[in-house]
Write a protein that binds this DNA or RNA. Structure first.
Lengths: 205, 205
DNA sequence: CCGTCGAATGAATCGCCATTCATTTTTGGG
DNA sequence: CCCAAAAATGAATGGCGATTCATTCGACGG
């Protein structure tokens, strides 16, 4: 009964196996989409038995939710650093753009799962994921709002609408890039043009 | 055997019933998404029996593909009219935004189905959707390019990148709106802010 | 070595829907 | 009116795939 300091086996569960399953799921979801992916495919890609997945996750939905939660968490951490830096507001926006495109470039599969697969999930799943997504939008909106209050940006635009627009624009650019040949120089150029477009649109005159 | 000039019944099929099914499918897909929609729900919404749908469409996928093909065609037709109108370039952009957000007339559910379902589909569907999507982007890019050549818009931005950004921004706005309470006034406001943001960002100075 | 217990397995189960098709209804020409 | 033949119906079918669970594995203390 007593829990020994040297736990007999890994008492909770093997975090390394959990990670293997999540990584495999990200890959397979990104390639085939959530609904077209069967649990057995995730299992095969992770090198575990079908049933093992249910030792770590409640069900297939739970796997997607977990990917989303942990993925957004990761992005949010970096985003907040930029948002709270003492840089000029223009530079913060530029850096957010670069960060988002750069980070997602490295983790294209994760990006695709987050932006694409969420859309095809059931309403219930969406309801769960939406608040997390909103946090992300809110950080960007916060930078816009601060910029407005400091007189750097025009005040007649709703910061959340600006944030959503920016997020969507980056998403679309990234998606097109991912579908194409994936030339990094092209992505950087797109990022620069997008930044310029938004910064000019935001500038206080 | 012989075909009489006065065809006995409507030989092909009743186009009015086909339309009812498509309209119903657009509504239900917009509300619940493709995968969460059962064929029987489409049938009920259309006021026909489940089996009747298979007299007009090969299967459930075929219903969605048909909506894409005919819907984008329809949107493209209107879009081209706007693009080639003699209106100011600023107004053309504004009208494109309204069109895509489904603020024009009947198109709201259609716009939602196309933008929300565009990426969620299997390989087969992606194959159908991607070329049509590119045409859509090209028309918007054409307006931007013309505006640049006429001196209305700044010339240092790649028109396609602008078009993709605009498309993505509208997509994100529509998606968030669809997930929320769906207040039409809020969508109109978002459209106006988005238009202002992009037009200021594009303006030649 | 052995026995125990949690972790892992994967074949069997079971519910869900897309699709089918035997039957009924509608149509319209004679 | 009557009789095909087309159109429509909706209950029955079948397949798919998520989830379960009886069984096996393997790590570890004794």
């Amino acid at each position: 009964m007593a829990i020994h300091s040297t736990a007999k086996k890994q008492k909770g569960s093997a975090p390394e196996k959990r990670d293997r399953i999540l990584k495999a799921a990200i890959q397979v979801f990104a390639k085939n989409g959530f609904y077209a992916t069967r649990v057995s495919e995730i299992a095969k890609a992770a090198g575990v038995a079908d049933g093992t997945i249910y030792l770590y996750f409640k069900n297939k939905d739970d796997v997607l939710i977990t990917i989303f939660e942990e993925g957004i968490e990761q992005l949010l951490t970096i985003l907040r650093e930029v948002a709270e830096s003492g840089d000029t507001f223009e530079n913060r926006i530029s850096r957010i753009i670069e960060l988002q495109l750069g980070l997602l470039e490295e983790q294209r599969d994760l990006a695709e799962v987050i932006t694409v697969n969420l859309r095809q999930s059931s309403r219930l799943l969406k309801q769960y994921a939406t608040p997390l997504f909103m946090q992300y939008i809110d950080v960007i909106a916060g930078v816009v709002r601060d910029g407005q209050n400091e007189g750097a940006f025009r005040k007649d635009l709703n910061p959340r609408i600006v944030a959503r627009s920016l997020f969507g624009a980056l998403d679309a650019i990234l998606l097109t890039w991912a579908l194409g040949e994936g030339d990094p120089a092209a992505l950087r150029k797109a990022a620069a043009h997008c930044a310029s477009l938004f910064l000019e649109g935001l500038r206080q005159r």
